[in-house]
């Protein structure tokens, strides 16, 4: 139906298709031989059963230059296209990540290459299959990776963790130790693992980060806590069923309020954003009660209560 609607640059697609297949789109130096064999077996079996789905994924890769030239700002929604292929596309997605004939650097806009890899990573985390964990971990720990790609791998692991993969959650904590210090811009991504254990991990890390850690790391942790306790996400049907939502949101909310009165103006802005995200229904009351109990800076808490009362998440 839409195949003819795009004014496709046919020649660019042909050129790309004829190019030699380069290496994997993203380095995976830390993928263990055993994990690699496991994934190879998984993908080989799937390929034999459903070769068409592999062709669909590789076809999308080949079409990216044309799609990028048609999408606004060259922005192709790769993830949505891959997710729409269904869970049976997971082996093909993992195969592309591990061994795929990636869009070579130079064949596309750098941003389109990145979008392709990010789309693969996000899709790998979407279908709640823990077989993707080693691949995602490998990408998340690659030494020279770009922040957007690593962040996508972390978010994908978070999605697996949210869906119940304890392995993914455990790996995330290990990855945090290896990554967060040098790349604080990644920290917010850890908040996409919506589990009470991750919330506790982040809260504990924030507590320890207060002792001598950098402002960027503290702000990253506050943002991550906002994400892990995001009220709108915990209200979605599947997560609401876990029964963890209230505990996560309250624990995070109280910890962030505790920090608010001692924070400077810039830090308060970050805290406010995170508290808005938590979106606790009784947030204003809780802030007022907090001031009464703890004797903290009343003016600061009044300011915070006012901000929460006018939360942009509430209409």
């Amino acid at each position: 139906m839409m195949a003819r609607q795009f004014y496709v640059h046919v020649f660019s697609v042909c050129l790309l298709a004829s190019a030699a297949a380069p290496a994997s789109p993203v380095p995976m130096a830390s993928l263990s031989p055993a994990a690699a064999r496991n994934i190879d077996a998984f993908t080989a079996k799937a390929r034999a059963a459903n070769p068409q789905i592999f062709r669909s994924v590789s076809k999308l890769r080949e079409e990216l230059p044309g799609l990028a030239r048609k999408a606004r700002g060259g922005k192709v929604n790769v993830r949505a296209r891959l997710v729409a292929l269904g869970p049976e596309a997971l082996p093909a997605v993992l195969s592309e990540l591990k061994d795929g004939a990636a869009p070579a650097v130079g064949d596309l806009l750098a941003s389109t290459n990145t979008s392709w890899v990010i789309g693969l990573l996000e899709t790998a985390g979407h279908w709640s299959n823990p077989i993707a964990v080693p691949v995602l971990e490998s990408v998340a720990t690659q030494p020279d990776g770009s922040a957007p790609v690593i962040a996508a791998a972390i978010r994908a692991l978070g999605e697996l963790g949210t869906m119940g993969s304890e392995d993914a959650e455990k790996r995330l904590e290990e990855i945090y130790g290896r990554r967060a210090g040098a790349m604080p811009e990644l920290i917010e991504s850890f908040g996409y693992c919506r589990r009470i254990t991750m919330a506790r991990f982040l809260l504990g890390t924030l507590e320890s980060a207060s002792n001598g850690q950098g402002e960027a790391q503290r702000n990253g942790l506050v943002k991550a806590l906002g994400q892990v306790a995001s009220g709108w996400v915990w209200e979605t049907a599947n997560l609401a069923k876990t029964g963890e939502g209230n505990d996560v949101r309250r624990a995070v909310f109280d910890a962030l309020v505790q920090r608010y009165s001692h924070a400077d103006a810039a830090a308060r802005r970050v805290l406010t954003d995170a508290l808005w995200l938590v979106d606790l229904p009784d947030g204003v009351t809780r802030v007022k009660a907090h001031g009464t109990k703890n004797g903290t800076d009343a003016a600061a808490l009044t300011e915070l209560a006012s901000k929460l009362a006018s939360s942009p998440l509430r209409r």
Partner: peptide, 11 residues
């Protein structure tokens, strides 16, 4: 409303 991705990003 049950889509975690959509709700997370909309928030």
């Amino acid at each position: 409303l049950a889509d975690q991705d959509v709700m997370s990003m909309s928030a």
